[in-house]
């Protein structure tokens, strides 16, 4: 193990780690928005949209991200839709994550009891207000553990964007192995980098999960 070399390449990993985080962050936010939208469409059984949403969920859950990225990045330009690699990665992550987030929210929405909604309506709140002030906050609290798990899942999924030549942690590692043949150092840094990102999140999630059990309504 070459310590000097590790110090030398650590700045590369810092850069790549930042990139991975940035990509994952945008992916998670977009996935959340798509997920909330899809789960609400399903919850309120919006007629036409429901069908589209369900097809989207099936399509996204039954295909691998790598294939989605290849199609977006190499396939679509041939029919005139040219997207940058970063845009492709963001679209891919949001497309994949959206359906997982929708599933997480579905669980939360189903956990809100009918009595809550009826109480809100009888107070004279509109349907939108009931959604905004009664259903949504409670559903969110219930689905936080699965949202957290999905967020970690999305961060892990970013590890394949090097396939469309984005300079993330995997890309840097492959580069260093290729150029310097310092395999052990590069792989060690790769694992350390992912641990630095994922371990705190995973621990935080465990902690939140434990805390949320006390926050349950009515029991």
């Amino acid at each position: 193990m070459d310590i000097d070399f590790i110090l030398e390449i650590s700045s590369l990993y810092l850069e790549a780690g930042k990139f991975t985080l940035k990509l994952a962050f945008i992916g998670i936010i977009l996935s959340l928005l798509i997920g909330i939208f899809c789960s609400l469409v399903n919850y309120y059984k919006v007629k036409f949209l429901k069908k589209i949403v369900n097809w989207y969920i099936e399509l996204s859950r039954n295909t691998p991200l790598l294939i989605q990225l290849f199609f977006l990045y190499y396939g679509l330009p041939k029919v005139g839709i040219k997207l940058g690699a970063f845009t492709c990665a963001v679209i891919g992550l949001a497309f994949l994550g959206g359906s997982y987030m929708a599933e997480a929210f579905r669980g939360g929405l189903e956990a809100v009891s009918k009595a809550q909604i009826e109480a809100g309506l009888s107070l004279g709140l509109t349907k939108a207000q009931v959604t905004r002030y009664i259903i949504f906050p409670q559903a969110l609290a219930v689905s936080i553990p699965s949202i957290g798990a999905n967020a970690i899942f999305i961060i892990k999924e970013t590890s394949i964007v090097s396939a469309i030549s984005l300079k993330d942690l995997m890309f840097v590692t492959k580069d260093i192995i290729g150029i310097y043949y310092k395999t052990n150092e590069a792989l060690l840094m790769l694992v350390v980098a992912y641990l630095i990102i994922l371990l705190p999140l995973s621990l935080l999630l465990t902690y939140v999960e434990r805390r949320l059990r006390y926050a349950g309504f009515g029991n």
Binding site: R61, N62, T63, I67, F70, G75, V79
Partner: peptide
């Protein structure tokens, strides 16, 4: 066939779907 990559990758996408969807 300059547009091959669209069809081939699209087809692979579809292949994965028709394998995994029935199982799900």
């Amino acid at each position: 066939s300059p547009s091959a990559s669209f069809w081939v990758y699209g087809f692979i996408f579809f292949l994965y779907f028709i394998i995994c969807y029935p199982i799900s």
